[in-house]
Each structure stands twice: as C-alpha cells, then as structure tokens.
Design a protein around this nucleic acid. Structure first.
Lengths: 106, 106
DNA sequence: TTCACGTACAACCATTTGGTTGTACGTTAG
DNA sequence: CTAACGTACAACCAAATGGTTGTACGTGAA
C-alpha cells in the first residue's frame, strides 16, 4: 500500500489507533486545511486502513488494527522483493548469463 | 535512494552489472526514446550507482558494485524504519499515552 | 574531408500528488 | 425554526516525474 507513504497519513493512522477522532478534530492537528485532511482520510479509508462511523453530525475515524498488521507483513514482503532484486544483481557478478528484459510493476 | 524506484532504472543497473554498454545500445533495449534512457542513466550516475567512461564516441555505462551493496544496506535500514514505525503504532495499542505530532521527512 | 553516429540538453507534455478554496447539504444546538 | 457545525466533493493549482521531439556538437568511419 502506498497509502502509508505519506507522513501525514501515517500520523493519522497512529492517532486513530490511540483513540478515534472526528475528521474536524483531526484537521485541527495539522497545518493544512480541513479538506486536505479529509482527502487523506478518504485515501486511508479506501485502503481499508481506517473506518468511519457516523456519530451525530460527526464522522468518527478509527484505525483498523488488523489492517495495520496486514500492512506490516506487506512491508516485510516488499522488503524481501527488494532484497531479492539486489541479491540477484550482485549474484550476476559471479554467474554472468544472458538475460532478457521484461517490463514489470510500477 | 529513490533512484532505484523506477523499474527501467533497476534494469539498467542490472544490465550494466553484467556487462557495460553504451547508452545507445541500452536505449535499444527499451520501448522508449534514446533521450529517456539517457535521462535515466543520468539519474543513476548522479546517484553514484553507475559510472560512464568515454570510449571513442561511445559512452560506456558500468554499474558500481559497491554502490549496489550500499543501496542494499540502505534498503535494509529503510525497512527497519518502517518496521519500527508500524511497531510503534501497534505498541500504542497497549500503552496509550498522549503524544504530539511533528512534521517529518517526505 | 565529410557525414553519419553517439551523446547531451533544452523545451515541452501528460499524469500524479498533496494542497487550496468554494459550494452544497444533512444534523444538531439554541 | 434557524443558524452554526461537520462533512463531502468539485474545481483549481503547483511541483515532481517519466516521457517526447528537436537541436547542437564532438568524433570516427569511409
């Protein structure tokens, strides 16, 4: 998930893991507009990292603990991919065989 | 290094680790213009991942093995940072203390 | 010597991303 | 009831990024 690539979003996730908060109350904590924070929350929600629950006219944001755990393992895997990539590169030093290029993810 | 965040650049690094190649010969391998490849090489060169050596009218590109190794440890550290971040989040589940937000890297 | 080749670089373009302001709308406090 | 609040969303903006074409220039093959 690239949803956690932004530091503001990471902080929102952290905050709402401690205690749920309305979008406005969240917005007060950051040096940006309400709309910006609302967008961040929307991104997090779409990524399944956070859930919103209506309470009166407020929308309470809460972090999904399991999603965070899932993200953690995703990070582990991503790291593994990278390591494998670099490993493969350095390996090619010793056993130089012909290889072809394929377009991959991005 | 974000220089390795692009798959084309990763492939260039890989290729030039196996055997050095001129920019044109590299460019032939990818579905993009010569200029685009040349830019990628420039990025890699500036990141110190690759060196160029003039040979006649060609410019031979070669991957710096040590730089790749350095990149590898950088990846390791980056992963550690992320893990620490997620760890800290999940930790907050158990010991909920008040905390303040600080803007960080991006 | 000349001309094609390999290179560098500028100018431009489309897309993504994080931000803004403004508007619309439902809900609840007074 | 009405006004203020909390929210959603559209429209716009600026910067970054990966791509393009076009131009300029040095060098080596013919």
């Amino acid at each position: 998930m690239h949803a956690l690539s932004d530091s503001t979003r990471r902080d929102i996730v952290r905050r709402c893991l401690v205690s749920e908060a309305s979008v406005s109350r969240l917005a007060e904590q950051y040096p940006m507009s309400f709309a910006a924070v609302q967008k961040h929350v929307a991104v997090l929600e779409q990524a399944g990292l956070v859930t919103k629950e209506r309470s009166g006219r407020e929308q309470l944001v809460r972090t999904d603990v399991e999603a965070v755990r899932r993200a953690r393992t995703a990070i582990d895997q991503l790291e593994a991919v990278w390591r494998a990539r670099v490993d493969r590169m350095t390996d090619l030093l010793n056993e130089p065989k012909g290889d072809t290029h394929e377009r991959e993810e991005r």
